[in-house]
Measured scan of single mutants.
Amino acid sequence: MQAFVKTLTGKTITLEVEPSDTIENVKAKIQDKEGIPPDQQRLIFAGKQLEDGRTLSDYNIQKESTLHLVLR
Rank of each mutant, 00 (worst) to 15 (best):
M1A: 03
M1C: 04
M1E: 03
Q2C: 08
A3C: 15
A3G: 02
F4D: 03
F4K: 06
V5N: 02
K6C: 09
K6E: 08
T7M: 15
T7Q: 06
T7V: 08
T7A: 05
L8A: 14
L8I: 12
L8H: 15
T9C: 12
T9L: 10
T9F: 12
G10V: 02
K11E: 08
K11I: 10
K11S: 07
T12F: 09
T12Y: 10
T12E: 05
T12S: 06
I13R: 00
T14N: 07
L15C: 02
L15M: 05
L15I: 14
E16I: 14
E16C: 13
V17N: 01
E18L: 15
E18G: 08
E18V: 13
E18W: 13
E18C: 11
E18P: 03
E18Q: 13
E18K: 14
P19H: 07
P19L: 11
P19N: 06
S20P: 03
S20C: 08
D21I: 05
D21E: 09
E24R: 14
E24Y: 15
N25F: 11
N25M: 15
N25P: 00
N25I: 15
V26E: 00
V26I: 13
A28G: 09
A28C: 08
A28K: 14
A28M: 14
K29I: 06
K29D: 02
K29H: 04
Q31M: 13
Q31P: 01
Q31T: 10
Q31E: 11
K33I: 14
K33T: 08
K33Y: 08
K33W: 07
K33G: 04
E34M: 15
E34P: 01
E34Y: 08
G35W: 03
I36E: 02
I36S: 04
I36H: 10
P38S: 14
D39Q: 11
D39R: 10
Q40F: 09
Q40H: 11
Q40D: 09
Q41H: 04
Q41V: 09
Q41K: 02
R42Y: 14
R42E: 14
R42A: 11
R42F: 15
R42C: 13
L43R: 00
I44M: 13
F45Y: 13
A46M: 14
A46T: 05
G47W: 05
K48T: 13
K48E: 13
K48F: 10
K48W: 08
Q49F: 14
Q49R: 10
Q49S: 10
L50P: 01
L50N: 01
E51P: 02
E51Y: 08
E51G: 04
E51M: 11
D52A: 07
G53Y: 10
G53W: 12
G53F: 11
R54W: 10
R54M: 13
R54C: 09
T55A: 06
T55F: 06
T55K: 11
T55R: 11
L56C: 02
L56S: 00
L56K: 00
L56N: 00
S57V: 07
S57M: 11
S57K: 12
S57L: 11
D58K: 03
D58M: 06
D58R: 02
Y59Q: 03
Y59D: 01
N60R: 07
N60W: 04
N60E: 08
N60I: 05
I61F: 10
I61L: 07
I61S: 03
I61R: 02
Q62C: 07
K63M: 11
K63H: 15
K63I: 07
E64C: 10
E64L: 10
S65D: 13
L67Y: 03
L67E: 01
L67R: 01
L67P: 03
H68N: 08
H68V: 13
H68M: 13
L69E: 00
L69Y: 01
V70D: 07
V70M: 11
L71W: 09
L71M: 09
R72S: 13
R72L: 15
